[in-house]
Design a protein around this nucleic acid. Sequence first.
DNA 1: GTCCGGTACT
DNA 2: AGTACCGGAC
Length: 249
Amino acid sequence: MHIDFNLSKNILAWYDNNKRILPWRVNKNYDQRLYYRLLSEFMLQQTQVKTVLPYFNRFLQKFPNLKSLSKTDEKTILKLWEGLGYYRRAKNLLSTVKILANNNFKLPDTFKEIKSLPGVGDYTANALLAFIYNKETIAVDGNVKRVFSRILNKKDTEINFENFVKNNKNNLFFNNRNSDFVEALMEFGSIVCKPQQPLCYSCVINKKCKYFQSKKKRKKTKSQTKKLRKINILCYLNKKKTNRINKKK
DNA sequence: GTCCGGTACT
DNA sequence: AGTACCGGAC
């Protein structure tokens, strides 16, 4: 499954003009970047941005950095997590931060090591590799799956996302902004390529999107629609008849 | 009431 | 491959 256009370039151009200002989108050189990214990624697992925002800010007030968070206990962190749900995330976050504390608050730089941290699966490991080390990898969450499957006009169950990334390296990792690109893809998926009523007409890649192109083709004049309906009814009746005959056998 | 979503576990 | 975990959206 191949794409024949520079997805990265297009999505980044959109992102630069349309991204939301979010508190964890801090400068790459900011010394708290790891903490902000880690905290937000744990909170954003199964939870929307607007729900996460107040919790994220409350955490920062109580624990301004990784070190202070690493020194708290489960009871305190669970209290602060109250209402966010999936409480195992809070426990895992604390365990992970305590592990990082033993590593001088450095994140390991391999997928395998990062994924071995409690509460970190495929998605978060790839997200952190991109966000912290600008690595050429894609964090595939629900948004990204939807974007790719619309571009290819295939069900996401029919796509091997690992292979898709491998086969399209040139159109995904063409510059040195992979951290931004990983973020941009998800942002694009949640704002433009939404599950319901995607904004296809203002989408910057609609010319290259097989879903949009086939949707356009399917637009029919009234008479075409009428004809089609007739045909469909005939097919249906025919099928019914055939079924009846088959049952009799 | 039903669907949705990363991770961990089965 | 299937399911529990949880709260929000619809």
